[in-house]
Amino acid sequence: MDQISLAVNGRTDIGQVREENEDSIRWFASADQPFAYIVVADGMGGYTGGATASKIAAETVQAHLDDLLKHTFFSCTSEQQQLILRATLIDAVNSANTALLNTKNLHPQFSNMGTTLVAAVMWRDFLIVAHIGDSRAYLWNNYGLQRLTRDHSVVQEMVDSGQLTQQQAKESNVRNHITRALGVSGNVEADINSWKLTQNALLMVCSDGLTEYLDDHAIERVLATHRPALECVYRFIDDANRLGGRDNITAGILEYSSQSLRQILPHEQSVTERPTPPDVTIRKLHR
């Protein structure tokens, strides 16, 4: 049996250029259950529109996740709980999209608003991530950094088709053009993937105001060396601002740690062995 500990922290910053922060972040870690989440939304849509969109999306998803831990959830099997988590995220995304469309219908000044969304949820050793747009989630542990999301953007499609290199994508004039967003149409499709964690890890969720300046190597260096781990959010914000801060910057960190509680029986001997590294750091469950 393993004792699982989850801790979370988040920060959003207006940056050095923008007059309004159109990012929103929500995070939570239960004091008595191995449950935690981070939600990041990066809004768009002109004066107050982007801020309104990201706030509505983040708060809607937050409300769905806060309503999750009920008696029926605890009485389910592990496999059923994973299905409930997935269904909850799908429902949350659809509800957020509907809330945005309803707001736009009632308030014409918000007609151009929309938002990206990335939501990462941990239940015990089960991690599930939903995303729309170019806000990202990363996982880091002793075996390195893994990007858990793939941008819904014009440049990502061009990279995938071989029209651009990764370096050219960073310099492209359309690098901020996304192909999916909440609040744009009645039908919205989030990519939802899940993993089972096999060792202690850090999860980082962010808006593109951070990845505009910090590539995967820079992100990995911070996550690998900056301690306490939860204070990486301040380092990320500071680094992005120091390098220009042209956009709003948002980052959330979730720290996952697991400790075995297995007790040695009186007739057993304690033997110290060197652990064998697993073939893979995390095991993908759904795609």
Rank of each mutant, 00 (worst) to 15 (best):
Q3I: 06
V8T: 12
N9C: 07
N9F: 12
R11S: 04
T12S: 15
V17G: 02
V17N: 03
E19V: 03
E20I: 12
E20N: 15
N21P: 06
R26I: 02
R26Y: 06
F28Q: 05
S30T: 02
S30M: 00
A31D: 14
A31K: 15
A36T: 04
I38M: 05
M44R: 08
G46R: 11
G49P: 03
G49W: 00
A51M: 12
T52R: 10
T52H: 09
A58H: 02
V61E: 01
D66V: 01
D67H: 14
D67N: 15
C76R: 10
C76S: 14
T77L: 07
T77A: 07
S78N: 07
Q80H: 13
Q81G: 09
Q81R: 15
Q81F: 06
Q82A: 12
I84F: 13
L85Q: 05
A87L: 14
T88I: 03
A92M: 08
S95I: 02
A96P: 00
N97G: 07
T98N: 12
A99T: 02
L101G: 10
N102G: 08
T103F: 11
K104H: 08
N105W: 05
L106W: 03
H107Q: 15
H107T: 15
H107C: 09
H107S: 14
P108I: 05
G114T: 03
T115G: 06
T115W: 00
T116N: 06
L117T: 11
A119Q: 05
W123K: 10
L127Y: 03
L127G: 04
H131E: 03
G133T: 04
Y138H: 05
N141T: 07
Y143T: 14
G144Q: 04
G144A: 04
L145D: 01
L145M: 05
L148A: 02
D151C: 11
S153R: 09
S153A: 10
S153K: 07
S153H: 12
V154Q: 12
E157Q: 13
G162D: 10
Q167W: 09
Q168P: 08
Q168Y: 09
N173E: 10
N176W: 03
H177E: 10
I178L: 04
I178F: 01
A181F: 03
A181L: 01
N187T: 15
N187F: 13
N193S: 14
S194M: 09
S194V: 07
W195K: 00
L197Y: 06
L197C: 07
N200K: 10
A201Y: 05
C206I: 02
S207P: 04
S207D: 09
T211H: 04
Y213T: 00
Y213P: 00
I219L: 14
V222P: 03
A224V: 03
R227C: 12
E231T: 09
F236A: 01
D239M: 13
R242Y: 09
R242L: 08
L243I: 02
D247P: 08
I249K: 06
A251L: 03
G252R: 01
L254T: 11
Y256D: 06
Q263W: 05
Q263I: 13
H267K: 10
H267S: 08
E268Y: 10
T272Q: 11
R274A: 13
P275R: 03
P275M: 01
T276A: 04
I282D: 00
L285P: 01
L285E: 06
